[in-house]
Amino acid sequence: MISLECDNLFGTWRDQARWLLSHQVDPSQVSWGEVQAADLFATDELIPEGLGPFQTRVPKALLDLLESAACYHGDQRWSLLYEVLWRVSHGDRTAMLAGDKLGSELQRRIKQVSREAHHLHAFVRFIALPAQAGPELPEYVAWHEPAHDILKSASQHFVGRMGRHRWMIATPLDGVYYDGEQLIHQRECPEAWRQLAQNVEDPHSEMWLTYYSHIFNPARLNPKVMEGHLPSRFWKNLPEGKLIPGLISEARMGKQKDGQAKLIGTKPGKRIVNPINVGGSLLPMAVYQPSDV
């Protein structure tokens, strides 16, 4: 068994896979893992240097798929990619397709990575730092906890939307900082970035909570659908997140029926006269708003 460590870098894995493939090393004989695990399964065989005699060409589309799937956090993260590469390099391109068992898992991981990138775009909440913070600090900061390694690629989304403002996104794993001209990615998020993103206070938080609580419609609540679009693991890092459990509870306790009526009943109303047809003639009908009752 050959055990390798690529430090979760696709470029490093690609070089390792190229070497393995050139020496015709079967996927069952290779394992990728942490350094500690690699030591447990290290081979006693002499590993030759340089590329081996086997040469092959693989479609660029496959490399793009493998690079996307490489962002997925899960079991056999890198071994699965090599197994797909092995099969395609030996003429079996069905390994790239969803109809194949291996290809289906590959496509599932790519879909999960894409969805996690969408979550970053949808649920990041930038908070403005005070103007007197200084030019050495970003103008906007955000804290996010993605399930997969999508920050470096997915954060490009904000470059064209934030203009030349300086901003930063910190995660438990890595971080990005845009200085107004270039996007800087740190594979290990600096502790100063983490502290800044997690401890900054939003001066507009109360306004946001008021807005969210007023647009929430208990009559249209479907918790299962909401969880599909807004997973609960993100609630703790959203300003409105602390409101959601209470709003759901109120809706389940009957507010779906009378929540809006109660609010409307406290507003001043006016009398409206509408004609009704009785026996072929139009008669006025007084309609009263709740405050008239």
Rank of each mutant, 00 (worst) to 15 (best):
R125E: 15
G175F: 01
A261N: 07
S281V: 14
L230S: 11
D174W: 05
R108H: 14
P275N: 13
Q289V: 00
E240R: 06
V176S: 03
S68T: 06
G265P: 02
D75G: 04
V124K: 01
L120T: 02
K255A: 13
D179T: 07
Y82F: 12
L40I: 09
F126Y: 14
L283A: 05
N274H: 12
G180E: 11
P284I: 02
L196E: 00
S89H: 10
D174T: 08
R164G: 10
N8W: 08
N222A: 13
P48K: 01
A17Y: 01
H185Q: 06
V176M: 10
A261I: 12
G175I: 02
Q156S: 13
H165D: 09
G74N: 09
R271T: 15
R164F: 07
Q256K: 13
S114I: 05
K257E: 09
E49F: 10
L46D: 11
A37S: 08
I248W: 11
L81A: 12
N8S: 08
I127M: 14
V200R: 03
L137K: 13
H148L: 04
Q36N: 08
G259C: 05
E136G: 07
I110H: 01
W143P: 01
A42M: 09
V30S: 00
S31G: 04
L102F: 13
I2T: 03
R164S: 14
L221N: 06
M1L: 06
A192G: 02
K111F: 10
Q195N: 12
H144L: 10
Y140I: 00
M253P: 00
M162A: 08
N274C: 06
E139H: 12
M168K: 00
D26N: 12
A170V: 03
S249M: 11
R187M: 08
L238Y: 02
L80G: 03
Q182Y: 07
V176G: 03
N237G: 06
N199E: 15
A38T: 11
Q256T: 07
F10S: 01
K224T: 15
A197N: 06
A154M: 09
Q29N: 11
M285E: 14
L46T: 12
L221I: 07
V35I: 09
G259L: 05
D7M: 03
G52T: 07
Q186N: 12
F126H: 13
L97E: 15
P146V: 03
M285S: 14
G134V: 08
W78F: 07
R108A: 14
W143T: 02
A69C: 00
A95E: 05
F10L: 00
L102S: 12
E201P: 00
V88E: 04
L282G: 00
V200Y: 03
S22T: 06
K101I: 14
H119T: 06
Y288H: 12
A286M: 08
H185N: 07
F126I: 10
Q55L: 11
A147N: 13
R18P: 00
E240T: 05
N237P: 02
G279Q: 09
Q289D: 15
V200G: 06
G91L: 05
L20Q: 01
V30F: 03
H214L: 12
L282V: 03
A17G: 02
Y140V: 00
A61L: 09
S22H: 09
M1A: 10
S213I: 01
Y140Q: 11
N217G: 00
E116Y: 10
Q198G: 06
Q289G: 14
G33D: 09
D258N: 07
A286S: 10
A219K: 12
N199A: 14
